[in-house]
Simulated assay, not measured.
Amino acid sequence: MKTYILAGALAATFAMTAPLQAQDTYPAGPITLVVPFAAGGQTDSAARVLADALQVELGQPVVVENRTGAGGVVGTQSVATAPPDGYTLVIGGPSTFVTQPLLSKEISYDAEADFAPIAIFAVAPMMFVVNSESPYNTLGDLISQGQSEELTYGSSGVGSSMHLGVEWFKSLTGTQAAHIPYRGSSQSLPALLGGEIDFLIDPPITALPLVEDGQLRALAVTALTDDPRLAEIPAMSDAGAEGYQQMIWNSIMAPNGTPPAIVGKLESAIETILAKPEFAERLQQLSLSARFIPSDELSAFLANERAVYGNVIEQNNISLD
């Protein structure tokens, strides 16, 4: 009988200590970083820059895997149901972790309950732009005109950050503007250049080259930034849309239930990486700025984003269903 009791005690002890030992040795093998968008885009490129740096910092391969479909939902959902052991992570952003879950009841994952936030590692404002031949030289000019007559604006589609961002701007300033959705910046920017619409909000990676080329005029950026190329452009909050702040951001998320020790190790590794000038330089080439927002602050940040966008969506009755 004593033999059985001893054996049972040893088995129980092993069962309790094995997960702790696994956390102590993490990572002991390759990590998969899921990008829920196609290869070659800004999100994918930023993920590969981070994966290269994490591989060096953690001493294990970090493999980027593109799992596309449904605007990022397919890849994100695959990580929501992955083992919470730190070996499957996902790149998170505004669409997959804030706006799409608010816009559609068909999303199969819970962006808040199914994931453990690790950190934001890259951010960028967007640019409020008009045609260079536009009569609007400042954001104030456009707001004044839009308060007396209806303007038009384009976006990358219904429910996109560009669409929701302008609707928020309208509610803050009383600007009247009709929405004309396009299928991405590749269509909306030519429409602006061709005089089909009055203005739009678009990321620097696509809008800035046209501003630098003299084809577009930047009236404002959607948030304060340390990108030197945007230093002379006023923030919308200082140019007539008080309280406005909208950012593109890239984060790392793990499945909910991932041990805090593993979350902490990944968070610490990302913080170390972001302190290196060469990492910031590589991100700047993608029109992104390195910025570390740790897991506890990320949770609060996400709650605020959901509150802001949720209010915009509800007020304007916007849905993807």
Rank of each mutant, 00 (worst) to 15 (best):
I273H: 06
N66I: 01
I5Q: 14
H163R: 02
G8N: 04
L210Q: 14
R48G: 04
T222E: 01
A178H: 04
D110I: 10
S156A: 15
R306G: 14
G75A: 11
P190N: 06
E106T: 13
L274A: 00
T96H: 05
R67Y: 04
G264H: 01
G69P: 05
Q147S: 12
Q145R: 14
P277Y: 12
V62Q: 06
A38N: 09
V79I: 10
T99C: 10
E57N: 03
S268V: 05
E167P: 00
A28D: 01
A82E: 00
T81F: 04
S287T: 05
S161N: 14
E65T: 13
F97D: 04
P36Q: 03
L172Y: 06
T25G: 00
A235L: 01
G71E: 02
D296L: 10
L283N: 02
A18E: 13
A231G: 02
S144L: 11
N66G: 03
L286I: 11
L192P: 06
D238P: 01
G41N: 14
Y244L: 13
A241D: 07
P209H: 08
F128S: 00
M127G: 05
P294G: 02
A80G: 05
F292R: 00
F121G: 08
L208Q: 13
P209S: 09
G92F: 12
Q145M: 04
A307P: 03
D321P: 14
P181T: 02
L6E: 09
I270V: 15
I270T: 11
Y109R: 08
V166F: 03
D141W: 08
Q145S: 15
G157L: 02
L192D: 03
L102R: 06
G69A: 07
L6Y: 12
L58M: 06
I248D: 07
A111K: 09
L10N: 00
S78Y: 03
A39E: 14
S299E: 15
G310N: 04
Y136F: 15
A46F: 06
A122P: 13
L200V: 02
S160G: 06
T17R: 02
S299K: 11
L230Y: 10
G8M: 04
S45A: 15
P209L: 05
T225D: 12
R183W: 10
S160R: 02
V312S: 01
